[in-house]
Amino acid sequence: MQFRFIVSIVVFTGVIAIGCATAPQETPQLNQARQTYSQARNDPLIAQYAPVPLHEAGQALNRAENAESEAERRHFAYLAERRVELAQSLASQRAAEDQVEQLRSEQQEMLLRMRAREAEQARQEAQQAQEQIRAYRTEQQQQELTQTQRETEQARAELQELRQELDQLQARQTERGILLTFSDVLFATSEAQVRPGSERTMTQLAGFLQEHPERQVIIEGHTDSTGPAEYNRQLSQQRAQAVADALQAEGVGADRFTIRGLGEDYPVAPNTTPAGRQQNRRVEIIIQNPVQPGADEGQPSGT
């Protein structure tokens, strides 16, 4: 009686034990799931980005290990594998999202650099253009300056030439033009003829006048105060004419001359001494400056 009771209990327990659990058998799906899960646990990406599905896979694997039937085992092994696959996908997804963030900011930075560079280039081009304009203007000014300088140089050179030539003629610059004074030694006393000794001077003067056809000539004769005024005036006129004739003989056109006899009216020295009187006895040749509009002839010297 007791023995049968004990046996029943043992059998009963056994039945329950067998009923609720079977020893886990090796199924290929479970092996597979174990391997996949184990690999996933070593994956740092999954650990970082998808720990939750990995945990779920572990739970499913546990259920598979403790499964009561082959079918149950296979079911939970399948779930475990799918969860690992999900973990892998999520990890890949989230890593890619991070990459997108990074690439977006890289793109942004590059765009900024490009814009900055384009702006810089534009600024440089603008600056270059301005400098070119400045350089061009400067060059223009420079050319104008050079032109003016050249013209001034030319005028100066001409003047220099003029002076040199007239130096030989002992000329001096006055406001009326270039003044040559022929003293009376060139004339015989009371005569109106130009002495032979003065030929060289006349030739030089004529040569100069021919070189400068734009200049008109005034020839003014003067005397000292010896003798009557009217006589002196006539004499001075004749002497002036003599000079003009001499120049004409050398080829200078008569239309260039203005001849005047000014008599004793314009002394350059006191008539009280012989030296002074000698100085007053003269013919003045004025080579006028080239005609400027509105200019007048100026006053004779000696006033």
């Binding site: 079911h75 399948y78 779930l79 799918r82 969860r83 696959e85 999900l86 996908s89 999520l90 890949s92 997804q93 890619a96 999202e97 990459q99 997108v100 690439l103 977006r104 793109q107």
Partner: peptide, 27 residues
């Protein structure tokens, strides 16, 4: 349960593929 697990994987793979596409575009 298995349908759910499969659908989750399908969804995750699809999203992952699209994000990878974005990555390639940006690159």
């Amino acid at each position: 349960e298995e349908a759910l697990a499969d659908a989750d994987v399908a969804e995750a793979k699809a999203q992952s593929a699209r994000t990878r596409g974005t990555v390639e575009q940006l690159q």
